[in-house]
Simulated scan of single mutants.
Amino acid sequence: MIEIESLFGAPPIPADQIWTIEKGAPNLILWGAPIMLALTAIEMIITYIQEKPYYDKWETLGSTLVGLGSLVVGAAVKLGLLYGAVWIYNQMPWRMELQWWTLIPCYLIFDFFSYWAHRISHEHRFWWATHVVHHSGEHYNLSVSFRLSWIQNLKIIFFLPVALFGFHPIVFFTVSQVAVLFQFWVHTEYIRRLPRWIEYIFATPSNHRVHHGSQEKYIDKNYGATFIFWDRLFGTYQLEEEPPVYGITTNIDNKANPFHINFHELQDIIRDVRQAKGFRRKWFFLFGSPIEVARQKQQAAHPKAVVEDQSV
């Protein structure tokens, strides 16, 4: 039986030993990158042989360049995040020992906050700018998993509560990487509906295809990263019915430029905030619902079309 005092009695990590934590935290994403690239290449070949419309060469190039940039950004901020995690760990009076089984509760708690971070990223425009990169692809394939925003690390603030539980920093960083790697396999058209119990618990390809759909019934649904039961619990679940239409409501033109893919929404936000009159309008264009922002901008650009549509 686990002794509570022993589990929560870990000593603080001295500053001069942080390098041992860095070496002890496996770089799973870096190790997994060649495997993901190989599987993506295989899917591309199969798609080409079967003449399936699952890939677009320019979009795939954009996804690859965005993914490579994400690896560089991740490596650059890793040490800073590690120091931050160790500092928080040292402040906790309930520090956990490094035990393999603590990966399980940490993963479940991490996924809960991942659900809310993901949901907020869809409901508030500033945070949408850190996530729209992932949704800007109009085709659904394994390369879409590479489309991770270069500024997505801003969302680390949503995961601070996980660190406050006192999990060992190596456990925290291992869990965060496994959570990212899990989401690779769900970005495919080749895996259809899985057995009901799996679809009920996990974020499967079918569940996640819904999340990438741009139809009204699919928008802002199925946020779960690993577990889909969060969506069932909080009322955001949607079953895959008709085939999703992928992309965002206003798709981008420059599909291969990783800088445009990453920062086009930020540029739009800056322009809208500058042009808005009054604090409330500026705040709306910065933190309002992306769907409502798009609707109001469309109304402003085509007022006659809106009037005619309402009169039908």
Rank of each mutant, 00 (worst) to 15 (best):
A76H: 01
V77Y: 04
K78Y: 05
G80H: 00
G80F: 04
L81Q: 07
L81G: 15
Y83P: 06
G84V: 06
G84N: 07
G84W: 04
G84I: 05
V86D: 02
W87E: 07
I88S: 09
Y89A: 04
Y89T: 00
Y89K: 00
N90F: 02
Q91M: 14
M92Q: 02
W94D: 06
M96N: 02
E97P: 09
E97K: 08
L98S: 00
L98F: 10
L98V: 04
Q99S: 13
W101K: 11
T102I: 03
I104A: 13
P105I: 03
P105M: 00
P105N: 07
C106D: 04
Y107R: 08
F112P: 13
F113Q: 03
F113G: 02
F113L: 13
S114Y: 13
S114E: 13
S114W: 13
Y115K: 10
Y115D: 05
Y115E: 00
W116P: 12
W116N: 01
I120V: 12
S121N: 13
S121G: 15
H124T: 10
R125W: 04
W127R: 10
W128R: 05
A129D: 06
T130K: 08
H131G: 05
V132R: 06
V133P: 07
V133F: 02
H134E: 01
H134N: 04
H134V: 10
H134A: 01
S136I: 08
S136Q: 13
S136C: 15
G137T: 11
E138V: 14
H139F: 12
H139V: 14
Y140P: 14
L142H: 08
L142S: 05
L142A: 07
L142D: 08
L142P: 02
V144T: 13
V144K: 06
F146E: 00
R147N: 09
I151T: 11
I151S: 11
Q152V: 12
N153C: 10
L154R: 05
I157P: 10
F159I: 11
L160A: 08
P161Q: 02
P161R: 04
V162N: 01
A163H: 04
L164S: 02
G166T: 00
G166M: 00
F167Y: 02
F167V: 06
H168V: 08
F172P: 09
F173G: 12
T174D: 00
V175W: 02
V175L: 06
V178A: 14
V178H: 01
V180L: 11
V180Y: 07
L181N: 09
